Simulated assay, not measured.
Amino acid sequence: MLSVTEAEFDCPTAYLNTATHGLLPARAARVLTQAVTEMSSGRMDMNRWFQRIEAARSSYARIAGVPPGRVATGTSVAVHVGLVAGSLPAGATVLVAENDFASVVNPFVTRGGLRLRTVPLERLAESVDADTDLVAVSAVQSLDGRIADLDGLAAAACTHGCRTLVDATQSAGWLPLDHGRFDYTVCGTYKWLLCPRGVSFLTVPEDGGGLRALHAGWASGEEPWESTYGPVREPARSARRFDEPAPFLPYLAAAESLALVEEAGPAAIGAHDRALADRFRSGLTSLGLSFVPAEGAIVSLPGIGETGAKLAARAGAEVSVRAGNLRAAFHLYNTADEVDRLLDALSALPSDG
Score class of each variant (00 low, 15 high):
Ser351Leu: 00
Phe280Asp: 12
Ala64Leu: 13
Ser138Ala: 07
Ala219Thr: 04
Val186Trp: 05
Thr164Val: 07
Asp178Ala: 13
Ser58Glu: 15
Ala28Leu: 00
Ser300Glu: 02
Ala315Glu: 15
Cys162Met: 10
Leu32Glu: 03
Ala271Tyr: 06
Asp344Ile: 11
Leu153Ala: 00
Leu214Ile: 01
Gly198Trp: 12
Ala148Thr: 05
Glu38Gly: 12
Pro250Ser: 03
His21Arg: 14
Gly217Asn: 09
Ile298Val: 14
Val319Glu: 10
Val96Gln: 15
Glu256Phe: 07
Cys162Asn: 10
Ser40Glu: 15
Gly112Tyr: 01
Ala255Trp: 01
Cys11Thr: 14
Glu126Asp: 01
Ser76Glu: 12
Ser171Phe: 05
Ala294Ile: 01
Asp352Ser: 04
Ser351Asn: 09
Glu262Arg: 13
Phe108Trp: 11
Ala97Gly: 09
Ser238His: 13
Glu256Cys: 02
Trp218Ile: 02
Val119Asp: 00
Ile53Gly: 04
Leu249Met: 00
Asp183Ser: 14
Thr75Arg: 15
Gly65Cys: 08
Leu175Cys: 12
Arg62Met: 13
Gly69Phe: 07
Gly324Cys: 14
Pro231Asp: 01
Asp144Gly: 12
Leu332Trp: 15
Ala85Asn: 13
Leu211Glu: 04
Gly283Cys: 10
Val66Ile: 08
Ala26Met: 08
Val261Lys: 00
Arg146Ala: 04
Thr159Cys: 02
Leu332Arg: 10
Ser171Met: 01
Leu346Gln: 09
Pro302His: 04
Val135Phe: 08
Leu258Ser: 02
Arg341Lys: 08
Thr93His: 11
Gly217His: 08
Pro196Glu: 04
Asp183Gly: 13
Leu342Arg: 04
Leu260Ala: 14
Ala72Gly: 13
Arg48Pro: 01
Arg197Ile: 06
Gly91Thr: 03
Ala216Pro: 10
Tyr184Glu: 03
Pro89Thr: 14
Leu276Lys: 10
Thr93Leu: 04
Leu349His: 02
Asp337Leu: 12
Pro120Phe: 03
Phe330His: 15
Leu260Ile: 02
Pro235Phe: 06
Ala328Gly: 09
Leu175Trp: 02
Gly288Lys: 11
